[in-house]
Amino acid sequence: MNMRMRATAPKGMTRPEGEDGYKLLNTVWQQFAQSKRWPTFELIDRALYRDGFEFEAAVQQLPDGLLLGIDPDMKRRPPQPDQELRLSLAGAVHCDDAAAEVKAFIGLVRLAGVVERDWETALGDSSAPSHPYIDPDVLRSHPAFDPGVFPPSEVLYRAAHLTSSEPWTSGLGFRYEELYWCVSFDRRIRPFAAVTGLAEYWKVRTSVLPPELDAQHVPVPVPAVSAPVVTPQATPAFALSIPLHPDVAAVAAERFEKGQFTDAVLRAFQAVEHRVQILSGLSEVGARLMGMALGSAAPKLVVTRATGASLQSEREGFRDLFKGAMEALRNPRAHGPHFADDPEEAQEMLALANLLMRRLDDAEAKLNAQPTQAAGTP
């Protein structure tokens, strides 16, 4: 007999406003648990539909911060079929069969606090990580590790994914085929270092990141800590959470998940280049292509949104952004030699590819809105 265990939500944690919301969270969690990868919108939408639920109705029952990767106002920004849906810690707490992962999450938090306290940067070693981190190897080598107490590797893998939207996390890397994960963090972990359970964790979290700021993703100051800091650095408790543009995700997401960070970046900017060629009808490549498509007073592709005196400045700025992306990011990775990309910096470069693709969406919409010329007219 299988027992379905749901964690107990602490006081102050937001929760779904109806059963449809609970159904949506559970469907996302079940798919993640089965495939080891967060599911797409299309997969979840179809699963709900088969069970007699509507995604639109279910998502309206979820307060901000439980389901990540989608704009709740689906009319303003309709989700793409391959858009990835993820759960935050608060979202997973309300899922059946997630109690073990929530408990393991607290164990990871406590371990992260110890690792950060004892962390020493290897001076002069450029290959050494610049931030403290934990992964399965760190876990197994730690004096507190007891294989008879710690949960199975698949539970730890899922628990690690719940750290990605927490205010003390600075990065999450993983390889789902191996159930490998790596969580990096910084001094923001210190207020959480001694928590013993979910209720205590959430109380500390609320003091660090109040619910109204959490929902709006507004940066907040790092709280004061009693331990001395050798090299203080003010870092806002803020983490981006944006879905990849479908055209970027199609060429980069799987490569990034496999740890092929340089190739993921290259493919993303090659996709930007190819789309500019298609939309502009030009066969040029690289920076020359971007100058010809975006650089004149009457550009072939209009990626600007400003009007009046700011229009020329924005036009020239985006022309240079597109050209710079080709020269600084695409070309070195296409022609080499170059250094291997750090996973965090690779994400930042993919975010730029995202922005460029979003502006190309605007350009394509403007092209499609142009009146077609009547047949026979000059």
Rank of each mutant, 00 (worst) to 15 (best):
A159D: 04
P152R: 09
L139Q: 07
G124Q: 11
G124K: 12
S164T: 09
S141Y: 04
A99G: 02
D97G: 06
A100I: 03
A99S: 12
S164M: 11
E154R: 11
D137M: 09
V109D: 03
I106W: 04
V115W: 03
P151M: 05
F150G: 00
R158F: 02
S165P: 02
G113K: 04
L162T: 08
L111V: 08
A104K: 02
C95N: 08
P152D: 14
S141G: 10
A100N: 09
L111K: 02
G107P: 00
A160P: 03
P152N: 05
K103N: 13
I134T: 06
L108R: 01
K103G: 06
V102R: 02
E166M: 15
R158Q: 12
P147M: 03
D97H: 12
G148E: 12
D96W: 08
P143E: 13
V115S: 04
D125K: 12
F150N: 02
A128N: 05
F105S: 05
L108T: 05
E166D: 12
V114I: 14
G124N: 10
H131K: 12
L162H: 05
S153T: 11
A128Q: 07
A100P: 01
T121P: 00
S130W: 07
F150K: 01
L123K: 13
A122G: 00
A159G: 06
Y157H: 07
C95S: 08
L139M: 14
V109R: 01
E166R: 13
I106T: 10
I106C: 07
H142C: 06
D118M: 07
G124F: 08
F145L: 04
V114W: 01
S164W: 10
D146I: 02
E101Q: 15
R110E: 07
D137F: 03
A122H: 10
D97T: 09
S127A: 15
S130D: 12
L156N: 03
S127R: 14
V109M: 04
I134A: 04
A112D: 01
L156H: 01
R140I: 08
P143T: 07
A98M: 06
L156W: 00
H131N: 10
V102C: 14
A122I: 14
E166K: 04
P136R: 10
L156M: 14
E116Q: 14
Y133T: 03
A112F: 00
T163H: 15
L162I: 08
P129D: 07
Y133A: 11
H94G: 02
P136C: 08
A128I: 09
A112K: 00
A144K: 04
S153W: 00
P151Y: 03
